[in-house]
Design a binder for these strands. Structure first.
Length: 610
DNA sequence: GAACTCGCCGTCTCAGTGAC
DNA sequence: GTCACTGAGACGGCGAGTTC
């Protein structure tokens, strides 16, 4: 600790000691090439003194010459320090041999390596006590501090009591894993800047940062910790902050979907509070300002400012919510019973009307799966001949086909038909191909091998499901030259556990759909859905990834497509013969996903492209 | 006396600033 | 442009003060 001094340097009484060579003098570090720029020297740990400039130094500039001096073999004594307490006599040298040469800057040097370097330097130099804690010069920047006060201050700061308190606060501070990036202005100081950025984004049509968070303080909190990329997108350098943001997105969606008519009056129900997981600090409002009390920072909960005043209102609200939940449970139970009864009745009628055909549909989880595990719904071509305006994929299938049904599990105990069609490579076993439309408990018999991500909405869920299926049917009936790959046969799981069959399936599907303008694959990896669009005649594969954050790689599916492509071309499949191989376009430039809506974006892209 | 608010403490981080 | 320094706010826990 060295207070400022107006003098440029201070003379230290020499305390000469005989040189005492140490084992470190024969340092194991290799000599550094003279042409390399040394790492930035920003502290005493890199700068030290030597008795005199080397007479053989090639540099007329003493500072530059210093950079080429080696760590002294004998112990030296500091006699003069500058106003910052750094030694100036003997002249400084750079002990680069203490730090590895591979670091681009001193900031990158690990603390352990710095500590080792400092220990080595301390063995080589003597620092008189006054150089470490020099006396205060009163005529400097802080004339109001007397020497006596300064000495007492140092004593206080070095006391065991203060050190204990300091360590305790360090421990507390370590619990804060969400450091902000606000600077000296805080949230209040950033308000105008963020408002201007929002306005500029709206004018330019660019996505407004964190527009999916309507709550001001939740949005501010996220914004204070995000970093803007050169392309205008935002990212969280701290993964813990990203987790909180995702949690808030989830709360926004779940709160909306709960369709609660009674808005909570509990301050603890705020999405930022819930996402952070720790209680609010009295007298301040996170995301608004550390000096802004709750009654101002959270006006939504103003009625709870003096909590005892609304205790009755809160009790009533809680009671209403409880009654509403119980009523909802009873209605749901009654509705499910009636629905099951009606569905069973309809299916029995359907079953009797289809008696004698080759297809038998089972209600409930009892579902047959294609025994080959190979092509399914993508190869199904059930449209009527008069509807066909372009050649169909089935034209490329020279083998026998058989009817099949694409079945979708709607709830845990109820499956429904999504579509009917034909499948090639028939067997005597009845084929029913299936998709899940919602998260499936792990103990249910699987319709197919696909496992939906728990944090990601299913690709074909409710309205999205309708859209996706309409897209599929429409493209087939109108001949929009779009083919599909079955996501239940190509996914993260099959690429790991059944790679050869998956590649074989891709190859067969490429062949079957080679006349198409595009072949769609809704692909799931790392709990995230993207649309992969294969254009055989252009040798191109486009990856429509809606995620704003670039945290995904698509190596497994990319490699599988590569392996399937070569035999497809060898076999004579349609492609651009002028180009070798095919290209993966991974840099989808219009990533606009907010929340957990990747499934929606996949369907949206399908709809637009088809 | 219980429930709650507010201010203090020290640490941490980083935007802003000025020197080079 | 880089670097070091400065200063301000955010933050967690605690305890004094306030309100009911």
């Amino acid at each position: 600790m060295s207070p400022p001094s107006p003098s440029s340097e201070r003379q230290i009484q020499p305390t000469a000691k005989p040189a005492s060579p140490t084992p470190e003098s024969a340092a194991p570090f290799p000599p550094e090439p003279a042409s390399l720029t040394p790492p930035a020297a920003s502290s005493l740990s890199l700068l030290a003194s030597s008795p005199s400039p080397s007479p053989t130094s090639p540099h007329p500039d003493p500072d530059r010459a210093a950079l080429h001096r080696r760590l002294p073999e004998s112990k030296l004594t500091i006699t003069v320090v500058d106003l910052n307490g750094n030694p100036t006599q003997p002249p400084k040298i750079a002990t680069r041999e203490c730090i590895g040469i591979l670091h681009k800057s001193f900031k990158e040097v690990p603390d352990e390596e710095k500590e080792l370097a400092w220990e080595r330097l301390k063995d080589k130099f003597d620092y008189p006590p006054e150089a470490v804690d020099p006396p205060l010069d009163l005529t400097g920047k802080y004339p109001q501090i007397t020497a006596e006060v300064w000495t007492e201050f140092l004593t206080l700061k070095k006391s065991s009591e203060f050190i204990n308190i300091s360590n305790e606060h360090k421990r507390l501070q370590a619990r804060n894993v969400h450091p902000h990036r606000l600077g000296t202005g805080g949230y209040i100081g950033k308000a105008d800047t963020w408002a201007e950025e929002d306005e500029a984004a709206r004018r330019s049509g660019a996505p407004v940062p964190f527009a999916d968070l309507e709550e001001e303080r939740a949005r501010n909190w996220a914004r204070a910790r995000a970093k803007q990329n050169p392309d205008g997108t935002v990212m969280f350098p701290n993964e813990a902050d990203a987790d909180v943001y995702r949690q808030m997105q989830y709360f926004v969606v779940s709160d909306q979907s709960s369709q609660s008519e009674i808005e909570s009056v509990k301050r603890e129900d705020d999405i930022l509070t819930r996402a952070l997981g720790n209680p609010e600090h009295g007298g301040r409002t996170r995301g608004i300002g550390s000096t802004v009390p709750w009654n101002i920072g959270m006006p939504k909960y103003l009625a709870q400012y003096k909590k005892w005043k609304i205790s009755r209102a809160e009790k009533e609200a809680r009671l209403k919510e409880e009654l509403r939940f119980q009523l909802s449970q009873e209605l749901t139970k009654e509705f499910n019973a009636r629905l099951t009864h009606e569905v069973t009745k309809i299916r029995q009628e359907l079953h009797s009307s289809q008696a004698g055909t080759t297809v038998v549909i089972h209600a409930g989880p009892q579902v047959y799966v294609s025994p080959t595990g190979l092509p399914s719904s993508c190869a199904s071509t059930g449209m009527d001949a008069q509807d066909r305006v372009v050649p169909s994929a089935v034209d490329h299938i020279n083998e026998d086909t058989a009817p099949c049904v694409l079945q979708v599990r709607v709830t845990a105990k109820f499956s429904s038909d999504a579509d009917e069609g034909l499948v090639f490579k028939p067997s005597k076993t009845i084929r029913v191909h299936a998709l899940e439309v919602e998260d499936v408990p792990p103990n249910l018999p699987p319709i197919k091998t696909i496992i939906w991500a728990s944090s990601s909405p299913s690709m074909m869920y409710q309205k999205k499901d309708t859209k996706g299926r309409m897209c599929w049917r429409e493209s087939r009936k109108k001949g929009l030259r779009v083919g599909f790959l079955d996501p239940s046969l190509i996914n993260e799981t099959t690429l790991k556990s059944n790679l050869d069959s998956t590649i074989e399936y891709i190859g067969m599907s490429l062949w079957a759909h080679q006349d198409k303008e595009a072949i769609f694959l809704a692909h799931n990896q790392q709990r995230h859905w993207i649309l992969i669009c294969i254009c055989p005649k252009w040798n191109m594969v486009y990856y429509f990834n809606s995620a704003i954050l670039s945290i995904y790689t698509w190596v497994p599916i990319t490699e599988a497509l590569d392996r399937a492509w070569e035999p497809y071309v060898t076999k004579g499949g349609k492609h651009d013969a002028k180009r070798t191989g095919h290209t993966h376009k991974l840099d989808f430039p219009i990533a606009q996903q907010t929340g957990l809506m990747c499934g929606f974006h996949v369907c949206h892209h399908m709809s637009n492209l088809s």
